[in-house]
């Protein structure tokens, strides 16, 4: 039960993008097309889950016993950067068009605060290993959900008569705000 609550809380109630404002950069940058949004969401989810597992192990097996909590940022970034490199190589190998459509935002997952934030929050809340993995899956699903909703709206928006000065980033920000408001409706779900 506890795990389900963690999952739903991470995915909807405390949605990383729309409620906690983490990872806005790819949210605005890669939400133009549905398929690249989905694959970006999957890539981020993958990095989140693996990095949550690895950072949990590092924190609880290396940093805490040696009293070296001060190194958590450095070691977490190390983990995330290596994982992103791995994902990048994998995507380039498997699907070159996908690699091209994600473009600069793929290596930028490294500096995506959603992922570092996730690792730090799980440390802060003293989650167990299973809990932090579930938390990561929930956060990844929430991130993908936000991206997909945004991409769906923006694809429709291409046909809408948006005033000239709102075009592009402007209207995207407004929609992001509306989505954030909508997601606030989930508070009190649990």
């Amino acid at each position: 039960m506890n795990l389900i609550i963690i999952f739903i809380s991470a995915a909807l109630i405390n949605n990383f993008v729309l409620i906690q404002f983490l990872g806005i950069c790819p949210f605005v940058g890669v939400s133009k097309k549905m398929d690249s949004a989905v694959s970006m969401g999957l890539a981020v989810t993958f990095v989140m889950v693996i990095s949550a597992a690895v950072t949990w192990l590092i924190y609880n097996l290396i940093l805490e016993p040696t009293n070296m909590q001060i190194l958590e940022y450095v070691s977490f970034i190390l983990v995330i950067a290596s994982l992103v490199q791995l994902v990048e190589m994998f995507i380039k190998k498997v699907s070159k068009p996908l690699y091209d459509s994600l473009g600069i935002f793929l290596p930028l997952i490294t500096t995506n605060c959603a992922i570092l934030g996730l690792a730090l929050i799980s440390v802060l809340r003293e989650y167990s290993f299973i809990q932090s993995v579930v938390f990561a899956v929930g956060a990844g699903v929430g991130f993908t959900l936000a991206l997909v909703i945004m991409a769906g709206i923006r694809e429709e928006l291409e046909l809408a008569p948006v005033p000239k000065h709102f075009k592009g980033a402007g209207i995207t920000m407004i929609i992001a705000g509306c989505l954030g408001l909508a997601f606030m409706g989930f508070s009190g779900l649990i």
Binding site: I58, L86, M89, K93
Partner: peptide
Amino acid sequence: NSLLIAVGSMGGLGLIFSAGLAIANKKLHV
């Protein structure tokens, strides 16, 4: 002592990850 632990643990982790990436680079080379 803590300095050594810090350098040792981070260096070790770095080595492990770089080894992993090196293998991945060979396997997934395009």
